[in-house]
Amino acid sequence: MTDPREKLVVGAGWQEKLVDALHGDNVRVLAPVLTEGTAEFREISAAAEMATEWINTRTPVKAVLFPRTEALVEFERRPGEDVQFTAADNEAVPTVVLGARPCDLNALDVLDTVFNWDYRDKLYAERRAATTFVGVACTRSDEACFCTGMGGRADDNEGSDLFVRPMPDGGAVLEVMNERGAALAKRLDGAAPAVGTEELVPPAQVGAGPFDTEKVKEWLDTHFDDDFWTDMSLKCLGCGACSYLCPTCHCFDIVDESDWRKGQRRRNWDCCSFAQFTKHASGHNPRPEQHSRCRNRIMHKFKYFIDRFGRKACVGCGRCIRVCGAGQDLVDILAEITTAAS
């Protein structure tokens, strides 16, 4: 939690006003929209399209800054001529994301670190600079949520440019967190003032989970080789769904897709649980079994990233638990490690 620069109390209808104002500025507005029984970030043309009751989107907000697939280079080979290539058109579109959850916005810290340490990833950085995030406090949670166990909370304003605390009548308390949030708040000048008291919808109560991340780290520091990894990985199908939907996972592949004449070099999400992920052309594979890959995933989130960058690469959004087809539960894994460490 950070103290906001400024607070604004707005009445019902503020979202409509904001979305209309942004469209007037030719800004793309993304918001959770109910689709196929789940919420996903979609471009909206009116605030009425926004989901009203949702816990979290299926795909995390990372996809806005780091898309599932994107072109890096365009190339063309005309008969009798040398191949020509150029940077793909990746101009960042001015965007406002409404309805992002605190866990997802916490995760942007991890992505910012990865894409800006030492070398700056131009594509990510330009999208990041063109995007404003409006976070919203969670008023509902489910049994998979465990943000509090990772140091977050349902109404954490960290990572938001503008943070929304909803009121029961559709109004909200808006917290301006930085310059970008202030610019957005300006677009709300003249919004209907709130009626009555500033009573908030109480934030969701999220359990911290039966684990202790410090103990987990201690155990991981000394248990690279342990039967635990073989046991815990038996369930894993290596499908990669947990990584794809993880708001902090950032592994990617770079591949060429083309016909005989033209094509693109593309960047696609990848996953360290895949058997081919680290496989050399020679056939040698540094992580040859599923347990070595599952171990890498846990180690990366709860040890390597801390050693390297000083923070955990998990925000407790619970997506990996919700999506796993085999019932693998990260909270159970952390609890088992905590028990083993005690």
């Binding site: 990865v114 030492d118 070398y119 950032h250 592994c251 770079i254 990848d270 680290t278 990366h300 390597y304």
Partner: peptide
Amino acid sequence: MKCGIGKCGRCNVGN
């Protein structure tokens, strides 16, 4: 490796 610049997450040995 894919990126060569510490982002794609593929070549790590420990941290």
